[in-house]
Amino acid sequence: MDKVVTIEEAIARHVRDGMTIAMGTGLESCIPFAAGHEIVRQGRRDLTLVGPVSDILFDQLIGAGCVARVIAAWVGNVGAGIAYSFRRAVEDGVPRPLAVEDHSNFTLALALEAAARGVPYLPSRTALGSDLVRGHPRLREVTCPFTGARLLAVAALRPDVTVLHVQRCDREGNAHLWGNLGVSLEAARAAGTVILTCEELVDDDVIRSDPNRTLIPGFLVGAVAVVPAGSHPSPTQGYVNRDDRFYDEYHEETRSRDGFLRWLDRLVLGTRDHQEYLARIGEDRIRRLRPREPRPAAPVSYGV
């Protein structure tokens, strides 16, 4: 089935107010910023965002007033530290109060993995002795029924939608991914449906030429949108490097609420789509983020 739509259609069709959305599951790589910006433009509200380390994408959606709750291990600006919209929401309720379900990277990974496996929880030995567990809705100390050992039970977390940015996929959403994956595969298998944004839409012969590299099967996917550089300013291995300077500029510009609103107007609300966003960033700047030279992997033979 052909699932290719525009990013506007993908968000309009699959992301509704009040939903639980996993994004930035690649951690600091392949963050679907273009999809996040479209969620802001379409004015979604009361979302629960899920992602271990969201970098500044969550900060932007929080500042834009789209978010009621985050389920995360770390919310900030990886290059610069603190993220100001997140702080303003938690400390002062601006632009609206924000609930935070705190995790470690491993507990969040296990919560998604439990949902991916279709079980209510997974046992682990992490976070024991940490205050993260205290009063937590999804973490509970339990006794192993076989050994009597003290364990941490991590309850399943099932996002309504997981949004991933990938290198290439076919029209059905069978996707090749490489580089740092974070918890993207776990989040995709855990979700009700998956929206893919891709650098390249390829013929299914390309996918079938290297099926071990297919990490997302098309049957998980509800929509495919072609959005080159859709992860900017985060990197997509082999296509676009990390725009380190962007994070520092964001940090400075969003220090005050007014500064954030100006930033949001200039790059998100004041742009019609991702192409216009990229034009505002500047063609030259994007070109400089392209890898300087290709570094292909050694080919493998599937010959019979």
Binding site: G26, L27, E28, S29, P52, V53, D55, V78, G79, N105, F106, A109, L110, E113, S124, R125, T126, W178, G179, N180, L181, G182, V183, S184, L185, E186, S234, P235, Q237, N241, R242, D244
Partner: peptide
């Protein structure tokens, strides 16, 4: 690398597993 999760951090790595796998090795 500025973050632990980008191509500069993956340079000449022998393996790029998911973070779930990394922490399972740790556990």
């Amino acid at each position: 690398p500025i973050s632990t999760n980008e191509m500069r951090a993956g340079r000449r790595a022998v393996m790029l597993p998911s973070i779930t796998q990394i922490f399972l090795y740790a556990q």
